[in-house]
Design a binder for these strands. Structure first.
Length: 552
DNA sequence: CTGGAAAGCGCC
DNA sequence: AAAGGGCGCTTTCCAG
């Protein structure tokens, strides 16, 4: 980390990734260093420097004496084209300033070696970012992206910084105990599997499993893998095979345990920060093409919940002593967004009446006199509701719900018959996207989709699904981001000690002092429901508990 | 030893 | 002829 002094006598800037932090100007160099030195020497900050999440941690700790965040070229370039693979500063400099920089002048500033070279590199970065401000801001303005940049993505930086710094408490002993249990389960399953396979092999290896199932035991293979067109051993194939042989069922059980153990139970304790006893994930703001956040190191947005065994992992996510966890999640956020964007009267009516949308769809497409049992009807209706959102075809819907392609087609037709504006919304969205080359969310966030004009049919179809899904998924992301920023401000204004600690797409998790539980509950619910005014009500449910497993 | 591709699967 | 949108992580396997 180095302090970059740009435009001497005017300001000092600390480069943070692709952004610059402006110190009060004019500020002499030694005063700038005085502000920053305590941060740079903070052991927690130094330790994090290798992991790449230093920038936000530093930002989260900045206090008095810092003006605020200057221009952020990373966020700007993300908003201008969120589908890009990388946003290297070099590329932005070439693109917006028409300059080629010699390789190696940028990059992450190291702590120890070659302080002077490091300072020069950081200075070059800060300088580049400052000069990108003009042209990139002009481009944001021209593309109608300035409001999202200024009122959403920039304010969100500090919210995410605080969230990462807060982290979440994890019960290490509980995970270690679970790991021992699972070890024994895997050992037993391994013995069964090798016996049934008439020989030992690596169960974790799809190629070896493929050989056992389809050659040694001569089972009939189902679908092929995407890349190598080899016989797939994926879950749905093994489910089929489980009907005729005992082995596939055991493999599925083995995989379920192995997945939970390796990805969560064994991995999470390793990521507990010894200094805080908590896990501090990184919430990436410039990865998802739709505008969603992503979480990494660890990914806390995919902690199991679906199965009872997996759900137990959430028991290890606990509140600090004297605190509770508060979870608040949107109810059917994407279907509400779809209702709003499409303007479909029936769908809007459903949400305005506070009806269960899957029940309503079930009634709409099956009518009163269907031979299918009601539970089955609702299950199908739910799948149809979501299938349409993702651009699922009758072919794959049929396989999912276990009916013929003809029947699946009939369900989809019935759906569009009852929700006609959803069909026109999808068709119009794709048609307009083909003309403009992009789609937009509620708040104007943009995603470019050049592949809509691809000569390749599958590539083109994929782009069409993205065109219909992105406004829905991306608008939902807009909503929750707005809620996070509003909530953060309200918590500060009311001087509450409750802290936002996780975001999981449609859910916010807070850690709240026991005496603030009710106050924080009603606040988070109110803020989430009022994030944006739609043609349908937004509904958020909040629950308090001692662990993440308790709050759903 | 590292890096990447592939397969598979956890979540919304 | 392909066949559900968006992510990140684990393991295996192979190349350098």
């Amino acid at each position: 980390m180095a302090v970059a002094i740009s435009a001497p006598g005017r300001s000092a800037y600390l480069p943070l990734g692709h952004s610059v932090l402006a110190l009060p100007s004019p500020l002499p160099v030694d005063e700038a260093l005085a502000v920053l030195r305590p941060l740079l020497e903070d052991p927690a900050v130094r330790k994090l420097s290798a992991s790449g999440k230093r920038d936000r941690v530093v930002l989260g700790r900045l206090g008095a004496g810092v003006e605020g965040l200057g221009f952020d070229a990373l966020l700007a370039s993300y908003l201008l084209d969120p589908g890009r693979r990388t946003y290297a500063l070099e590329d932005l400099v070439l693109e917006f300033l028409g300059e080629r920089r010699p390789p190696g002048t940028g990059g992450v500033a190291g702590e120890d070696a070659a302080v002077e070279a490091t300072a020069r590199a950081a200075g070059a970065d800060a300088d580049a970012v400052l000069r990108l401000d003009g042209p990139m801001t002009a481009k944001l303005e021209q593309e109608g992206l300035l409001p999202v940049y200024e009122s959403m993505e920039m304010p969100l930086i500090e919210v995410l910084a605080d969230m990462e710094r807060a982290g979440v408490k994890v019960d290490r002993a509980l995970l270690v105990a679970m790991s021992r249990d699972m070890e024994a389960q895997l050992a037993a399953l391994t013995r069964d599997i090798h016996r049934l396979a008439k020989g030992e092999f690596n169960i974790n290896s799809p190629p070896q499993l493929r050989e056992v199932l389809f050659e040694r035991l001569g089972m009939k293979s189902g679908k092929k893998t995407a890349k190598t067109r080899a016989a797939s051993t994926a879950e749905d194939v093994l489910e089929e095979l489980a009907l005729v042989h005992e082995l596939p069922r055991r493999i599925l059980e083995y995989r379920a345990v192995q997945k939970l153990k390796s990805t969560y139970v064994d991995a999470l304790p390793e990521l507990i920060d010894p200094a805080t006893g908590r896990i501090h994930a990184t919430f990436n703001q410039t990865v998802a093409a739709t505008g969603r956040l992503s979480s990494a190191d660890p990914n806390l947005q995919n902690i199991p919940i679906r199965t009872p065994e997996g759900r137990r992992i959430r028991e290890a996510f606990v509140a600090e002593k004297g605190h509770r966890l508060l979870s608040a999640d949107y109810s059917q956020i994407e279907l509400r967004v779809l209702a709003h964007l499409s303007g479909d009267p029936t769908l809007i009516d459903t949400f305005r009446r506070g009806e269960d949308v899957h029940d309503r769809t079930s009634r709409e497409i099956f009518g009163a006199l269907s031979a299918i049992p009601p539970d089955e009807q609702r299950r199908i209706a739910k799948m149809v509701n979501y299938a349409l959102l993702y651009g699922k075809t009758a072919f794959s819907l049929a396989k999912d719900i276990g009916v013929s392609r003809k029947e699946a087609e009939a369900f989809i037709e019935a759906y569009f018959g009852r929700y006609p504006r959803v069909r026109t919304f999808i068709d119009d969205t794709i048609a307009r996207a083909r003309e403009t080359g992009h789609v937009r969310t509620l708040l104007g966030r943009l995603r470019r989709l050049p592949d809509l004009k691809s000569k390749s049919f599958p590539v083109r179809m994929e782009a069409e699904r993205q065109a219909m899904n992105t406004p829905v998924q991306g608008s939902a992301a807009d909503l929750i981001k707005r809620a996070m920023i509003d909530l953060d401000r309200e918590l500060h204004e009311r001087k509450l000690r409750s802290r936002l600690i996780l975001q999981i797409h449609d859910e916010l998790l807070l850690e709240v002092p026991e005496d603030e539980g009710e106050k924080a509950s009603s606040l988070v619910k109110r803020v989430m429901e009022g994030a944006l005014e739609l043609d349908v009500p937004l509904v958020a449910d909040a629950h308090l508990g001692r662990s993440w497993a308790e709050v759903h």
